[in-house]
Computed example of a mutant assay.
Amino acid sequence: MCVELLSYADLAARLAISREAARALARRRRLPRSRSGDGKALVSVDFSELRYVPRPRRGRRADPIAASMARIEAFKIEAFKAEIARLEAIAAGYRAVFERESERADRLAAELKQAAAETAAANERAARLEDEVADLRTGRRAGDSIAGQAANRLGRLAAAIVQADRAACR
């Protein structure tokens, strides 16, 4: 029968329990207590008689409302994750359409630039032909001879071709 004087912290360490559990055990077993010189409580313990086995901790009973709220929150989170995945898939589809249309717009812009250059060249040719036709009509290049009449006819024919070309371009 070996009695030891231990503080609550030492008793807790020896029994592998918390300090508060050691204090409650000393109160429950009505172990003799005293104060040390530095003011700490000391407990007289005979370990051969104590025979203490710590009980496993009992968990708190789950609050049914909190549990159902947790399930609802988990369900909401899963629903949000599914919605995010769905929206990301839609966004990926739109992104592919955007890229395809962007490439198409670039091709059309290049074609438009080329068409504008061809139109400018055609307008320049048409202006030269109109000048030549005007010269031929006024007779500046040809006299009243047969060659001049042929040149006038040729000028009228060229004017008709220019007008037909313009009508076809519109």
Rank of each mutant, 00 (worst) to 15 (best):
A92L: 12
R104V: 15
S44R: 09
R140P: 04
Q149T: 12
A79R: 10
A22Q: 00
R30V: 08
N152E: 15
L31D: 01
S36R: 08
A142C: 15
C2L: 07
A26T: 04
A151W: 03
E132G: 02
S36V: 05
D106M: 10
L112C: 03
R153F: 15
R140Y: 05
Q114P: 00
A96W: 01
F47V: 05
R30D: 12
A120R: 12
S68A: 05
R170H: 10
R19A: 00
I17F: 00
L31M: 03
A116N: 02
A127Y: 04
S145R: 06
D38H: 04
E132H: 14
Q149D: 10
L42S: 03
I65F: 12
L112P: 02
S102M: 13
I84Y: 15
E132F: 15
L157G: 07
K76G: 09
R107H: 09
L136S: 10
Y8E: 04
G37N: 14
A134P: 09
E132W: 15
L6S: 08
E118S: 03
A109E: 11
A96S: 03
S102D: 06
R95H: 04
A22I: 00
I161T: 07
V43Q: 07
A158P: 07
A120N: 03
D10S: 11
A121P: 05
R95D: 11
A150P: 00
P64G: 06
